[in-house]
Nucleic acid binder design. Structure first.
Length: 112
DNA sequence: CAGATGACTGCGA
DNA sequence: ATCGCAGCCATCT
């Protein structure tokens, strides 16, 4: 099926699913991997619809700062932080620590 | 159809 | 170094 823009969402979900446990990535990295470095916001929008996908660990997707910008979109209040900490990550003040160590860039790991 | 919003990013002051 | 503004693209109202 020749998909259309829906394929973009699908690609986003696919990349997010490939994020290893204990790692995180940024919206811009995913957007860039999809060939749309300027569509970082659209990636976030796709995550907003990620609730339709059960296999999308959206908690592993943070902004370029390593801040859990989308944590407010999760049920509860600190669920996103708890999930990441459960994966072995250190979160302080809704911000991922050692971001350089846990950062997972699809453009590098997947070598585009 | 047009305007506003958003889980972002980069540049300028 | 910190704060603010503009750009970009898809969806929502």
């Amino acid at each position: 099926m020749t998909s259309s823009k829906d394929d973009f969402f699908n690609k986003v979900y696919d990349v997010v699913r490939q994020i290893p446990v204990g790692r995180v990535t940024s919206y811009g990295a995913i957007a860039r991997f999809l060939g749309a470095p300027r569509s970082s916001r659209v990636v976030g929008y796709a995550m907003n619809s990620s609730h339709t996908q059960d296999d999308v660990p959206a908690q592993r997707v943070v902004n370029r700062n390593g801040v859990l910008t989308g944590k407010h979109h999760f049920p509860g209040t600190n669920l996103m932080q708890q999930l990441l900490e459960n994966e072995g990550l250190d979160i302080i003040d809704d911000q991922v620590q050692n971001l350089d160590e846990v950062f997972w860039d699809p453009n590098i790991e997947l070598e585009r």
